[in-house]
Each structure stands twice: as C-alpha cells, then as structure tokens.
C-alpha cells in the first residue's frame, strides 16, 4: 500500500513508535529508559507536525510544538532530576523474565492488531494504519507498569500510555480539539510534578522506591495494629 509521502512517513513513525514501546519494555537501566521515553516524545511531536502538514490544520502545529516541549524535553528532564537525586540507576530484577515479557509483548501486539483490523477497514483517514500500533503501544505501556517494580518506571509506563493515547488521537481523528489537548497536557505535567514530589516522600518514608516494599510496609503496619 503505497500512499502519499505523508502516509508513508506516518507509517514509518508508527513503526518507530512501536519500537520505542518495545525498547522501553526491554531496558534495564533507568537512564536508557528515560532516553527512549524522550525519543518517544520526540516522535510524537514529529508525527503531529507531519499530520498537521498533511491535513493543513494549524492547531496540530501548536500541539506538535507543545508535545515537543513537554514530552520531549520537560518531562524527561524532570524525571532525570528525580533519578539523579534519588540515586536509582537500575531497575532491579523485573517481575517477569525479560524474554517472557517480550514474548507476551509480541502476543499483545498481535492481539491488538487482530482487534483493530475491522475498525481500520471503516476508517478513511490517511493515518488509519497506525491505529493498531497505537493500541498496541497503550497495552505495552500498561504491561510495563505491571512488570516493573520501581515506582519511577511505573510512572514512565503511565506516561507512555498517555503518549500512545495521544498518538491514537492523532491517528484516528487527526488530533483532538486544541483546548482539550492543552488541558490534558497540563494534567500530565501536573501529574508528573506530583509524582516527582511523591517519589521524594515515598523515599523518605519507606527507604525504597519499590512498590513491593510499600506493600510490605502496609501489611506490616496492619499487623502492628
């Protein structure tokens, strides 16, 4: 299916989007997780810009710039600061064996492809092919949240889910209304800030960023009472 150049570019970016989702899932080191996350933000911005060019909508240009600033630069930078100050460099032993996670991820991708296909048939948009990938990315982000132990990686997983939703929005409806988008962007920003604050709080309270440690603490507390 050789569509226009715009469509080819969007398709290529969608493939890269999928790659970044897998890469996020496969990384062990915090800093490389962050790099891939920033890369994903960058990809999103480029996609938005290209779709904007393809459809000629000015609003999308603005959201592209916003995405670039927020998801490509600001959020990664914030998270990087948190990581540096909290001295967490490596994801400890992931919950599942990494190759098993990858296999599950492949299965999930295949499944979402299977599910989305009927929808794609209806859509007339230039970006419809990327729907399946966007769905897969959402699921992969959730998978990341499930399989990781550290709170920070879980937050990155959450943000990746948000990224994929944004991608889906561009793909399925040529972007949301600008007002909605700005609202979401601020929500995400504030969520990230709050997460950042929480990390410090959690760290000082539990001496660890591992979710299990918190659970253990909670149970322990219950026992005490």
């Amino acid at each position: 299916m050789n569509g226009t150049l715009v469509q080819q570019l969007v398709d290529g970016l969608a493939a890269l989007m999928l790659l970044t989702s897998f890469a996020l899932l496969a990384q062990h080191r915090m800093i490389s997780v962050l790099h891939w996350f920033a890369g994903q933000g960058l990809l999103l911005a480029v996609t938005a810009a290209i779709v904007a060019y393809g459809t000629g909508s000015d609003e999308l240009y603005i959201s592209a710039i916003m995405t670039l600033l927020l998801k490509g630069l600001l959020l990664p930078w914030l998270l990087w600061r948190v990581i540096r100050q909290l001295q967490v460099h490596r994801e400890v032993e992931p919950l599942l064996n990494s190759s098993l996670t990858m296999l599950i991820a492949l299965g999930v991708t295949l499944f979402s492809f299977h599910m989305i296909q009927p929808i794609e048939k209806i859509s007339q948009l230039i970006t419809r092919d990327s729907m399946a990938i966007a769905t897969a990315c959402v699921l992969l982000g959730m998978l990341m949240m499930i399989t990781r132990r550290k709170a920070i990686t879980q937050v990155i997983g959450f943000l990746a889910v948000e990224n994929s939703l944004f991608f889906a929005a561009i793909g399925s409806t040529n972007g949301m209304p600008l007002v909605v988008e700005i609202g979401i962007a601020f929500d995400v920003l504030i969520a990230a800030l709050i997460f950042g604050l929480f990390f410090f709080q959690i760290r000082t309270t539990f001496d660890s960023l591992e979710v299990e440690a918190m659970n253990a603490h909670l149970i322990h507390k219950d026992d005490d009472e």
Partner: peptide, 8 residues
C-alpha cells in the same frame, strides 16, 4: 508485524 499492519 509492521509489514502486516502498515504495508500488506
């Protein structure tokens, strides 16, 4: 997968 999803 991307062959099937995007190109096929």
């Amino acid at each position: 997968l991307s062959y099937y999803m995007l190109e096929a």
